[in-house]
Design a protein around this nucleic acid. Structure first.
Lengths: 222, 222
DNA sequence: GCTGCCTTTCACTCAATCTTCACGACCCTC
DNA sequence: GAGGGTCGTGAAGATTGAGTGAAAGGCAGC
């Protein structure tokens, strides 16, 4: 199914969730402190995150990942009575939380919901175009495309949400990083480069569509 | 913000949530049994649903709405110890739940998350006309419509509140921005353009209705 | 330090879009 | 049925937004 990164400093919790989650068909990654969590996060499809952690709190981890991997769904494990934290967590962008002590079956159910919501895939294909996020490779008609890091990220971001319109601002935030100081016309320039490499025409695009006054979108099939 | 349908048979709960949710800027619809809930659901952007209800249980309601309005996010209110119910609720497709006794702030936060996730409803349909806010796409009889940014925003604003009359002033405020310096007849001009694209006739409109002396409204179904 | 790629800014152009205006039709009141 | 207000609508002009080429700055590897 999916790769689940499980972060808790309590071995008992790790163990019980490991059993339930692997029974569900997931591959498990495990970490017992914030640093390890960050190191492994890039490989995960879902993150189950305890709030109280050595080295870095679950919060910090969530906050950092929010920027690095905004699409990574996070299920937070909180102790009862940490309502304040829970609220902040939700506002921070965590997708969901469970209160300890929890039933493992509930965690499994929530993970299922998170995954269903995201429709995660490791292999994107749109007609002639093929993307492999993991390997950071792109093919056009079977031929490998030579894309710069930025170009790949930009294309991937758009392609992972076909049809969805992205403002330049949101793209800057997502692809360039939230603190990017430059002007938003960079996006246009890279769009031109991408279109050139994809053989796409701005007037009549197959893949990268301009939404005037709003931003860009990856064209939906059909 | 959004229209929240609040369903509970306990007046105290209705009241406290009414206060918090309207403070958050939402418009409230209220029901105290399952029948009323079903009757009002069509108008809602989010549903907050108690499980224990007269006439029809929250479950039944959820199950029915799942089919009728699969896009309507549901936040279920469950009593503690109903874990069984909770799991079934999630599998049923409810988006989320909160356990009583809950903090109203938490409910507000969860509603916010649900709305953010949905983009406040991702799919509007009125007969032949279909709108997808997030994708900024509009279809008429299955054919994509080419709308300018302004036209789309205008149409969306009206369509998100069928039957509601908007004065030109309010439309300017909402669609053009609150500090718009121009004259309000612009609205008329864009209305003409929209009607043309929608194949609508000012005399006898299917969608965009003039309310003489007041403003415009999106015609309600039927 | 040089080379070559990658990224960013800038300037120019063209096209899409928005706004205003003007005119006429219609409606309501007196 | 006259007059004032309201709305529909076409057209002209003003404005904005995006495509794009070129140049300059950065950076990594040699």
């Amino acid at each position: 199914m999916a790769r689940v990164l499980l972060v808790d400093d309590d071995p008992a919790i790790l163990e019980v969730l490991r059993i339930y989650l692997s029974r569900e068909g997931h591959t498990l990654l495990e970490a017992s402190d914030g640093e390890q969590a960050l190191a492994l996060a890039a490989q995960a499809d879902v993150l189950i995150l305890d709030l109280m952690l050595p080295k870095r709190s679950g919060w910090e981890v969530a906050q950092i990942l929010r920027l690095e991997q905004p699409d990574l769904p996070i299920l937070m494990l909180t102790a009862r009575g940490e309502e304040q934290d829970r609220l902040q967590g939700l506002d921070l962008g965590a997708e969901d939380y469970v209160v300890k002590p929890f039933s493992p079956r509930e965690v499994v159910a929530r993970v299922r919901v998170l995954l269903r919501r995201r429709g995660l895939r490791d292999h994107l294909r749109f007609g002639d175009l093929e993307l492999r996020p993991k390997k950071r490779l792109a093919y056009l008609g079977g031929e490998p495309l030579s894309l710069s890091k930025l170009e790949f990220n930009l294309l991937l971001t758009l392609a992972q949400h076909p049809g969805l319109v992205w403002s330049r601002e949101r793209l800057l935030e997502r692809v360039w990083g939230s603190d990017y100081p430059g002007i938003d016309r960079v996006v246009d320039v890279h769009m031109v480069a991408l279109r050139k490499k994809l053989g796409d025409d701005a007037e009549n695009p197959r893949y990268l569509e301009t939404v005037r006054g709003v931003g860009y979108r990856f064209k939906e099939e059909g």
